[in-house]
């Protein structure tokens, strides 16, 4: 049987299909990895209930496990407790920042010039989890992962 630690390591390499700079473990959507007898169970939670990435992520996880010799695996979707952006890991936040996507926080600094003179242009963005912002100092438009 492949060890849990090894499985977690594999899951680190499953990218979010819409924000490929982060992995699914970075986002905190992998809630549990355990064995039920010889059946591996991977518990995932969706970020948003209508997020189109959810199905793709399930498929990617299955493919990744199978490619590494895990034949008996079950993916379980768990809704409660509901996903929160607090579960995005430190590394996930750093990776988002590097890609110019501002992680959730008390302030929304511009990813280009660090100015906090930024404002929301729309509550929603290119994916369900983001909002559109603009920097009033350097005029850079950017995306912000809204706290949920």
């Amino acid at each position: 049987m492949v060890s849990i630690a090894r499985i977690l390591d594999l899951l680190e390499h499953v990218r979010d299909p819409e924000i490929p700079v982060v992995s699914i473990t970075d986002l905190g959507i992998v809630r549990d990895v355990r064995y039920d007898g010889d059946m591996l169970e991977v518990v995932l939670t969706p970020t948003y209930s209508g997020c189109p990435a959810t199905q793709l992520i399930r498929d990617d996880v299955e493919r990744m496990l199978r490619a590494h010799g895990v034949e008996n695996a079950r993916i379980i979707t768990q809704l409660s407790p509901a996903w929160t952006t607090d579960w995005i890991t430190k590394r996930g936040r750093a990776r988002l920042s590097e890609a110019g996507i501002v992680p959730p926080g008390d302030t929304v600094p511009c990813p280009l010039c660090d100015s906090t003179h930024t404002r929301e242009m729309a509550h929603f963005g290119s994916t369900p989890c983001k909002a559109l912002y603009r920097c009033d100092a350097c005029l850079e438009p950017f995306e912000y992962v809204k706290p949920i």
Binding site: Y48, G50, F124, S126, L132
Partner: peptide, 10 residues
Amino acid sequence: VAIANVSLDL
């Protein structure tokens, strides 16, 4: 973008 997102959530 907002309307599409709200629709998707629903």
